[in-house]
Write a protein that binds this DNA or RNA. Structure first.
Length: 438
RNA sequence: GCGGAGGUAGCUCAGUUGGUAGAGCGCUAGGUUGUGGUCCUGGAUGUCGCGGGUUCGAGCCCCGUCCUUCGCCCCA
């Protein structure tokens, strides 16, 4: 029985052309993060299972993670997200770090789920967090960073929407305005989170079912439906418009407008699950209906670092998946053609040329060119065909005549032009080409 | 965990009421013993996902199973 050539379910092989694409995306993430003063960090792919038990429930551990016992009987889990890990790392050096701490990473994460569009079992996730800032300037910086990343890929504002809301505000509205208890709030948050997927009548019926008879008599359902139509902070019920949560959101939106971020909107239906977020939350969605999964998600989580037994640290963070990012870039035709790293394929002619050519090869490599040599000894047309198929931009011919004269034929493999040049000239021509192609 | 669609050449796919397997692209050899893409001529494509069943006979029908994909659930 032959072995299967397929990669593990929900995971991908990265052939060189796939890896090139991944490198393109990661390079942009890194470059823009570093431009904002963020430093890269990483951590082990395995964590003690306890790290994820603190907030998530046992069911998520059992059904949606890769969890197993190591040989010492410890329960370990392959990391499913980076936020608990980075919180652990900051807590571990709580006293010695210089705040604000600005960190980013691009870990691979594993979740045990059914794969579908935009969601696989193994994926890479960009994470950026700023620790130690209580003011809304932290949210502004993180959202601006996100916006700059998208613009660095060539995205136009009509290709994506930045949605903003506040968990604190939702808590006030659902609690004080609608009069719900904590269990009702939690159920309603999950329901509103799915609102766009449900037929409206179905949503209304399920919302009604959450309410108690007395809440119904008080008109809570109508108040909720009216509330969910809100598209602007000024439309919120009187008495809530000047709460700290609303003022913070308004300040953030004003700051973003001043930073030329034109597509940030208040979205009251944005919930981001029921997890560690404490106040402002945000998501970035693709406007292409094919890609209905959010690309970026984040918010403020001031309580997590304190779980490690140190004084709490305020944090705002954002994360983005590589799969949804790639879907976005493909949908909007924002992916440039990726070229191989190899600049030149050397075609050898004649007997024992490989040995005679070593000095020339060393010189080209010393000068900084990426040089592959065809060492198969086949006919020249085969050598050229292979170089073209590999996507290499140039071929250099080396044979006795060239070695004697010091003039080598440099062939441009995309248009077929060919000229004899000195090595020095070849190096500068190829370097110019590489610079222009980016 | 649940549901839809699909698995035939390296790739994209066709295959009639069940009658021994096809196209395009790609691959390969030559026309060209130091030069690719166009052109001409020849060649090889295969456990029809896998296992069983029905039948004289199965790529096609039935059962099971694995895999891919889209959605539901979930989404930290």
């Amino acid at each position: 029985m032959a072995l299967s050539t397929q990669p593990y379910k929900g995971a991908r092989d990265f052939y060189p052309e796939d890896k090139r694409l991944q490198k393109y995306i990661f390079d942009k993430w890194r470059k823009i993060s570093e431009r904002f003063g963020y430093e890269e960090y990483d951590a082990p792919i395995l964590e003690p299972t306890d790290l994820y038990l603190s907030k998530g429930n046992q069911e998520i551990i059992d059904e949606q993670t890769y969890t197993f016992q190591d040989r010492g009987g410890r329960s370990v889990t392959i990391r499913t997200e980076m936020t608990p890990t980075v919180s652990r790392m900051v807590a571990g050096k709580r006293q010695e770090l210089a705040y604000p701490v600005r960190w980013y990473s691009i870990p691979n994460l594993w979740r045990y789920e059914r794969a579908q569009r935009g969601r696989l079992r193994e994926f890479w996730q960009y994470n950026a967090d700023i620790f130690g800032v209580e003011g809304v300037e932290a949210e502004h910086e993180i959202v601006l960073l996100t916006d700059q990343i998208l613009k660095a890929f060539g995205a136009k504002p009509d290709m994506y929407v930045i949605q903003l809301s506040s968990r604190k505000l939702i808590d006030e509205l659902f609690g004080n305005y609608l009069g719900l208890d904590n269990t009702q709030k939690e159920t309603l948050i999950r329901l509103v989170d799915r609102m766009k997927k449900l037929p409206y009548e179905s949503f209304v019926a399920q919302a009604d079912a959450i309410l108690s008879p007395s809440q119904r008599d008080a008109g809570a359902l109508d108040k909720l439906l009216e509330l969910l139509k809100t598209t602007d902070l000024s439309q919120l019920p009187e008495g809530f418009r000047s709460s700290p949560a609303v003022l913070g959101l308004q300040q953030l939106m004003d700051m973003l407008a001043n930073s030329m971020v034109t597509n940030a909107v208040f979205d009251i239906t944005l919930m981001r699950g029921f997890d560690y977020y404490t106040d402002i939350v945000f998501e970035v969605s693709d406007t292409d209906p094919e890609n209905n999964r959010s690309m970026f998600g984040g918010g403020r989580y001031d309580g997590l670092v304190g779980l490690f037994g140190v004084d709490p640290v305020p944090v705002v963070g954002i994360a983005a998946g590589d799969v949804t990012m790639q879907n976005f870039l493909e949908s909007h035709d924002l992916l440039p053609k990726q070229r191989p790293e190899t600049d030149v394929s050397v075609v050898l002619a004649g007997a024992n040329t490989y040995e005679k050519a070593q000095r020339v090869l060393a010189e080209l490599r010393e000068a900084g060119l990426n040089v592959a040599v065809d060492i198969t000894g086949r006919k020249l047309d085969k050598q050229i065909k292979a170089a073209v198929k590999q996507g290499v931009p140039y071929a250099i011919f080396i044979g006795d005549a060239e070695l004697a004269s010091g003039q080598y034929k440099l062939r441009n493999l995309s248009d077929g032009t060919e000229e004899a040049r000195s090595l020095e000239r070849i190096v500068s021509l190829v370097k110019d080409y590489r610079k222009n192609k980016g």
